[in-house]
Simulated assay, not measured.
Amino acid sequence: MFALAIKEIRFFKLKYSLIGFILFLLASLVFIVSGLAGGLSLNNVAMLENSHANHFFLSEDAENRLDQSGYIVDDLLEALPREGGWEPFLIQNYRLDADSSETKLAVTMMPVDPNSFLYPGVIEGTDLSDSEAIEIVVDQSMKVDGVTIGDTLYEEDNDLSFEVIGFTEGQTYRHAPVAYLAETAFYSLELTPHTVANAIVIETEETVLQAAITGAFDEGVWVGKADVIDGVPGHSSEQMSLNMMIFFLIVIAVFVLAAFFYILTIQKLNQFGVLKALGASNQFLIGATLLQVLTLTTVSLILAIGFTYFITTILPEGMPFDFNSGLLVQYSVTMLAVSLIGALLSAIKIVKIDPQQAIGRVE
């Protein structure tokens, strides 16, 4: 059975190479579009996705939105001992000037304790220190704008200068890079009369600590990370649109593959009839067909995954792309299953084929 399937592929090299190439293109299209869509979606909430903060205490009427929640930091420090394991989650949007860019750079400024679970660390440069030095660690996506270690970024409204001392990765929020600043330095700037935190966060569920926070601020509610991510403005609708686009792309690929293998099998009915006349069973012929489809589709999908990975290495720096191997495997299994189902649709024709009709001996 297997020998017959492989011999036919070898004999009709051009035909099967073209079939494999079409499968490769379809799979590559699905994989690349899904990677771009996933990267765009992740770029909106990567900071939250990669954060070790898993439980958020938000204002009760905030509807899981960080930008609608607020607690005065001075009140937090007065009501709760800082060593208790909680951290203030504070984000502010700024537009910074850089010598390397003619336009203002949008960033999300996030003051953190450099020793806390909120600080992601650096992949290049120097880590933040707990001091009043106005130094920042920024997401590496800012390299696209020409930002380098040692550069000074200017905030015109408050006449502030931030020195870039390092780069981190996977830290973007609402499609803007996150800039981390030591909270000691941030509070010393006195940008507003009362610095307001968007939420109180903890890393792991701690009943006693959560009860203490709830008791200190009764108009609040504990929310999980997933709910906070869904509450990011525009994220749910953006993700829904991207998922719908991928869904229809897969549906189109599914119908093309199913129809393609069905037609391919129908074209070989005369050959099947001759083989039946020589004693081949229906089970043998259907099995050989499925083995051909399995071989072609598997090779094409493997090549498509490899090509997609190659694409990630040549994309412009800073372009969001999520090479999610688990998701690609799911899509591959789906396309493989559909290819086999498309081939199975012709099994009825194979079973019904009359050897005499196939070899032209109809009376």
Rank of each mutant, 00 (worst) to 15 (best):
D61I: 11
F272D: 00
V107T: 08
Y16R: 14
L344A: 10
T214C: 04
A259T: 10
E205M: 11
S161W: 00
D75C: 09
D130Y: 06
H55V: 13
E155L: 01
D157F: 06
T126N: 09
T308L: 02
F186K: 02
Y180R: 01
S100Y: 04
V208P: 00
T334L: 14
A347K: 06
D354V: 11
A3E: 11
V196Q: 06
I32S: 09
L153S: 08
Q68H: 14
P81H: 02
Y94M: 14
A259V: 13
D67Q: 11
F57H: 15
K352D: 10
F261T: 05
L90S: 11
P177T: 09
I134D: 01
N44F: 07
T265I: 10
G273E: 06
L327T: 09
F167Q: 04
I305F: 10
H175Q: 12
N93C: 00
A277C: 08
I19A: 15
P320I: 05
L181E: 00
Q283Y: 12
T265G: 00
G150W: 04
L48G: 01
F11D: 09
S116L: 07
V178Y: 06
R174F: 05
S51F: 02
A182V: 00
T195E: 15
G39I: 09
L23P: 12
V112M: 03
A343H: 02
S34E: 08
T103S: 13
R10V: 11
E83I: 12
M319S: 10
I32W: 08
I149Q: 02
G39R: 11
G360R: 07
T289W: 03
L77D: 14
M142I: 12
Q292T: 05
W222N: 09
P120Y: 03
S69I: 03
L25W: 07
Q171I: 01
L328H: 11
L14P: 04
L257M: 15
T298N: 03
G121C: 02
T103G: 08
V351I: 13
E8A: 15
G84L: 12
Y180V: 00
D159V: 10
S346T: 08
Q330Y: 08
I6M: 14
F167H: 03
K268R: 15
A258P: 03
A179I: 05
N54P: 07
F255G: 05
D127F: 02
A216W: 05
V299N: 03
D99C: 05
A179H: 07
A358S: 14
G150L: 04
L249G: 11
E83V: 13
V254T: 15
V338E: 00
I353Y: 01
T195Y: 08
V178F: 09
T289Y: 01
E63Y: 04
V73T: 13
A182C: 05
V232Q: 05
S51M: 05
E63Q: 13
L242H: 09
L294G: 03
P320D: 08
V196K: 10
V137M: 07
F21D: 04
R361N: 12
M240I: 07
T312L: 06
